[in-house]
């Protein structure tokens, strides 16, 4: 008799997941509730990648705030626009990094190929736009 037979009707599909749920309280369950433990070094590397993104976000915030707070000789409208672009990127970066971290961790647990990184294009494009805005602002000041 299979274990699923003892479950109420409709729970057969969930039986596997219940069995795999680790006894710890790790969060989020949609990551840790599936698959099997990867090599801890891979999980740690994934965590460091997240942290590198988080620090990149902090650097973008610092750049955006510094543009305004240091009273640089840049045309004020363009300067504010560049600062807002940098700060928006710096706010999005940790959120995108969290999303990338959880997808990578889930893929590793399921032995699937790693998902493509999120946000590279946005980061590069945004920093480029902010740079052009500052350059234009310098010329117009």
């Amino acid at each position: 008799m299979s274990p699923a037979a003892s479950l109420p009707a409709g729970c057969e599909d969930g039986g596997m997941e219940t069995e795999q749920r680790a006894p710890d309280g790790r969060f989020p369950r949609w990551v840790y509730g599936v698959g099997s433990e990867p090599d801890a070094r891979f999980s740690l590397a994934n965590e460091r990648t997240f942290l590198a993104w988080a620090r990149t976000g902090l650097a973008l915030l610092a750049a955006g705030v510094a543009l305004e707070a240091l009273d640089l000789p840049v045309e004020p409208g363009l300067r504010l626009a560049a600062a807002v672009v940098l700060i928006a990127l710096g706010t999005l970066a940790p959120a995108a990094a969290w999303w990338g971290w959880s997808r990578a961790e889930r893929a590793m647990r399921l032995s699937r190929p790693l998902p493509a990184p999120v946000g590279f294009g946005l980061l590069v494009g945004g920093v480029g736009v902010a740079g052009v805005l500052v350059l234009l602002g310098l010329l117009r000041a």
């Binding site: 790790r26 969060f27 989020p28 990551v31 840790y32 999980s43 965590e47 997240f50 942290l51 988080a54 940790p94 959120a95 990094a97 969290w98 971290w101 959880s102 961790e105």
Partner: peptide, 9 residues
Amino acid sequence: GGRLVTACA
């Protein structure tokens, strides 16, 4: 793991 990452984000 995940709790730290989520809190940091």
